[in-house]
Design a protein around this nucleic acid. Sequence first.
DNA 1: CGATACATGTAACCGGTTACATGATTTT
DNA 2: AAAATCATGTAACCGGTTACATGTATCG
Lengths: 180, 180
Amino acid sequence: MAREQAPVSSLVLAILGLLSEQPRSGYDLRKVFATTAMGQFSDSPGAVYPALKRCAKLGWLRSETHNSGSLRPRQVFSLTARGRTALAALLSRPVMRRDLERRPDELLLRFAFSGGILGRRGARRFLTGYLREVEASLADLRGQAKSIGKIPPCVRLAMEHGIEGYETDARWARRALKEL
Amino acid sequence: MAREQAPVSSLVLAILGLLSEQPRSGYDLRKVFATTAMGQFSDSPGAVYPALKRCAKLGWLRSETHNSGSLRPRQVFSLTARGRTALAALLSRPVMRRDLERRPDELLLRFAFSGGILGRRGARRFLTGYLREVEASLADLRGQAKSIGKIPPCVRLAMEHGIEGYETDARWARRALKEL
DNA sequence: CGATACATGTAACCGGTTACATGATTTT
DNA sequence: AAAATCATGTAACCGGTTACATGTATCG
């Protein structure tokens, strides 16, 4: 009786993952997005604060207010039990080809958090799915590269970029599977 | 007196680039997005047809109508001179760090088309800028990886994925520079 | 004749971007 | 005292997603 999973943006996934590590305020989250390797996500208030509100409304987050007398109280958010369940469900989704092509960063984000939420088993399951899709895409790209006849050098180089990127992804996934 | 460049979506860039090669209908474009390595772009009619209309309104595209008597005339679009100029301006934009982090696919798309529109000089200029930003990001990521102390294995592996990806990008760019 | 591919479009929804607004606290 | 940083928020805009709507042409 699995409930349908509402589509969740990468930003929400990042927020849930970060809050699963420790409670943070909206501003804390924005700083993470602005200054760390998670710079792919928006640190703009117009994205972060509404996202936090949506998650709170879904019951995934609770907030604790500091300086409640102040006009600008600081709100610190943390994951609820339901939020943790929702995060686990999001992280457990099978790796789809579409994700690999359209939002590869989100996939790596899922992997980074899956260790803490799903454990080694979950992380390994992710990696096998990831490797499967990478290899499928690689085969596809190689096939296309062969079947196209004469193409301009820049187009050929761009395709080779894609192929080499997937090869690197596959090597990484195999190594990660050995390490875990 | 360079006019300000309106922000242009990746989809529009892809459309302009494809139409610079040959005239195509909206359906043709959708097929390209649905079946080739450009699958990162939306093949949904709700994205493609409005994008074509916007470009036509900007004077970047002209359309030729076949079967004009029919209720469903087929419209074939091609780049106007102004469209080609706009595309050249888009492809000439310097490579920004933000693009590398947020829309790497769009960068490669720009490179793929720059050969035909900007010539070898333009393609080489792109590659040097790309390499510069990749190396900067790489240094940044390595620094972060070092400065963080103990991190969970999955997080470390995810960071290594990023580093190895950039290393591959840099190798590719150096090779491409040699080849061009 | 039914299914599939061809072919174009609209409408509601959603969420990210940009810009603006507000005010407290800390640093120089 | 001014500037920077901390901290939260709103509103307009834009464009992609999804779903729906419509009709033709081709093939088995």
